[in-house]
């Protein structure tokens, strides 16, 4: 474990870091190009290799014709993701607690089968359900609304919440709830007063996954909305014409990934404290 080992280790880490950040740097550079700078081959440094232009960025906030206004899609995305995540996290936490503390049996269906039912929802590729969901939302007049998307996203995110929280509760000693019940709490009271306050780490992880998978979904947002409720990924793809404006696409991409990238900092903080311990098993 000498110096060489450390040097090699840092070298490897730097190589991986370069790989991770490369597409972002490339997008940043591209977002300041114009058509001539793009078509003359790969160029990296503004001023040195090409004349920078800000049209990529200005087009994002211009209204109407000159570009697409990204503020509304941004707010839509945020609302749908947050609402669906909160609902999923709430329902999922309760279910996960139930599954980790009680045994259910209906016919041959046991706890593990119920858990599997939840998780198996993730196996279904979104396109399979696109048309049925469309017809269902049409019936309840929820097409092209935030409400409609939240319904669908709950089906998408609930399995994740159940998966993370089941593992998490399995790592919390049962003695904790039993003590509370000896003190006179009802089972439900014990859950809310004692178990839940000790579950911050699990909730953070589950919530984070809900946010990631909700924010990043594309196909449902794409098929179940018309003009009123556009979400961010859909708005970005609307720039994907036969003549792709690389510059605004890059600027748009950078803006849309920033909020979630900030989550990485929060997650890292929790992880360093070791408090994600039980969240994955």
């Amino acid at each position: 474990m000498g110096r060489t080992y450390h040097i090699i280790k840092y070298l490897c880490l730097l190589v991986w870091t370069a790989f991770v950040v490369f597409p972002f740097l490339w997008a940043l550079s591209t977002s300041f190009k114009d058509a001539n700078a793009v078509t003359s081959g790969a160029r990296y440094l503004p001023w040195v290799e090409f004349e920078p232009s800000v049209q990529g960025w200005t087009s994002l906030f211009a209204s109407g014709s000159q570009g697409i206004n990204i503020v509304t899609p941004f707010l839509n995305s945020a609302s749908v993701t947050l609402l669906a995540s909160i609902v999923s996290l709430g329902l999922g936490t309760l279910a996960a607690y139930g599954l980790s503390r009680y045994s259910y049996k209906v016919g041959f269906v046991k706890n593990s089968d119920i858990t599997f039912f939840f998780i198996s929802q993730r196996i279904m590729p979104p396109i399979v359900l696109a048309i049925p969901f469309f017809l269902m939302l049409k019936e309840i007049q929820a097409l092209d609304t935030i409400f409609g998307l939240v319904i669908v996203y709950v089906a998408l995110l609930l399995p994740i919440a159940v998966w993370v929280m089941t593992d998490f509760f399995a790592s919390i000693p049962k003695e904790l709830d039993e003590m509370a019940m000896i003190d006179g709490c009802t089972p439900i009271g014990a859950f809310f007063r004692v178990v839940l306050p000790n579950s911050t780490a699990g909730l953070v992880v589950a919530g984070m996954f809900c946010l990631i998978f909700g924010w990043n979904d594309f196909f449902f947002a794409f098929i179940l909305t018309f003009t009123e409720t556009q979400l961010l990924p859909v708005a970005i793809v609307s720039l994907n014409s036969s003549v792709t404006p690389w510059w605004s696409l890059s600027a748009f991409a950078l803006i849309s990934v920033t909020p979630l990238a900030l989550i990485a900092i929060v997650v890292e903080r929790f992880m360093s404290r070791g408090s994600l311990a039980g969240a994955f098993r």
Binding site: G64, S65, G67, I68, V237, S238, L239, N240, S241, S242, V243, P245
Partner: peptide, 12 residues
């Protein structure tokens, strides 16, 4: 259609 082909004049 997506921007710009036909999409941009439509928006305009």
């Amino acid at each position: 259609h997506a921007i710009p082909v036909i999409g941009e004049p439509t928006a305009l």
